[in-house]
Design a protein around this nucleic acid. Sequence first.
DNA 1: CTCGTTTGTCAACGCTTGTTGGCAAAACCA
DNA 2: TGGTTTTGCCAACAAGCGTTGACAAACGAG
Lengths: 202, 202
Amino acid sequence: MLNTMTAARRSDGTRAAILTAARERFAADGFERATIRAIAADANIDPSLVMRYYGNKEKLFAAAAEFDLRLPDLTALPPERIGAVLVEHFLERWAGDETLLALIRAAVSHEAAAERMREVFATQVGPVAARLAPDPATAAVRAGLVATQMLGFALCRFVLRVPPVVALDRAEAVAWLAPTVQRYLLGEAPTVPIDPPADFAH
Amino acid sequence: MLNTMTAARRSDGTRAAILTAARERFAADGFERATIRAIAADANIDPSLVMRYYGNKEKLFAAAAEFDLRLPDLTALPPERIGAVLVEHFLERWAGDETLLALIRAAVSHEAAAERMREVFATQVGPVAARLAPDPATAAVRAGLVATQMLGFALCRFVLRVPPVVALDRAEAVAWLAPTVQRYLLGEAPTVPIDPPADFAH
DNA sequence: CTCGTTTGTCAACGCTTGTTGGCAAAACCA
DNA sequence: TGGTTTTGCCAACAAGCGTTGACAAACGAG
């Protein structure tokens, strides 16, 4: 072993192939339906190799579901464009990367994946909200609200494939969603009546 | 057999117990992790009875995932309150019923459940949007957009349990979400530039 | 009471799953 | 060259799954 850290191993190609196949399968089938055997078949290797290189299915998923939103710097932007740029960025970031899909599909019935998802939004969207929010105390809620809209869109478009949502081209999607995200991040927090009406006519 | 249709059977209690247990398990674990054996155990009966009464797991799910949004009549409402009333209704409808949760968890990796979900929004929210939209041609998109926000909220609050979204009380949630739904249903459709800018500074 | 039907239990099937250990070839180092 | 490590394949395991069919008890109609 020449290099002590991150030595180039002969098996790196295989490792990468496994990871790629894993992402595809997890994205397409979710955690439980994506089988080690299928992933190994896609990568043209034996299932036991997956175990040797990644320990178990859980750890394989953890390795495959590493996800960076790569949020751009928004500070230099005219404030009224922030929503649009952010939505545009989300859509572009998700279109070419199956990791987010894998994460959503798995997170729904897999606690570790859900935790990863929460983490992504807390650590990556949270700070952005903190810098933009009129009242810093509301930053976490704002980041959460952005998550509801953007994940909801991803859910309907990529997972549930709701036809009219799939039919939207990117510009239309941005035009519809941008004001929402804009308001969640920059709009003033709504004032809630102290004693909300318990009932009203249905 | 006295009555030809919907005769009261001695096993109706068991059937109902199975359905209740099924909804709970599907809601908590998703389609594949919810096992027939576990459902039967919850209902205090033998797994084979589930098969006898519901045929197979697929049909059991179909029976357990029947869902009616019970959308209220909005025609008599002042237009500016529609978003709020609708959001309030969604939240109330979902809080006490595990079916929606089961549907979301299953739909993510189960095509039949996804189809059911699309159906629910197309047939129940679609008509409402058709009656409210300024331009009827945009009704389907509007219903879809409402789905992105409301399902996204349900996803973050009930499934992913994103802390700041869980922390919102119902009135706050309504205050934040109502304007979004209001705009999706009643706002004018955004005009999209014919040739959207392909690139911009990141 | 008696006979047919319904309700429920039990044991087992065939299959798939994640995971393991052994073994052969290839690659590397001396 | 010889010895060690790495890479890969093969066969098998224990467990869990949906599902099936046989059989006993409870029930309802005549």
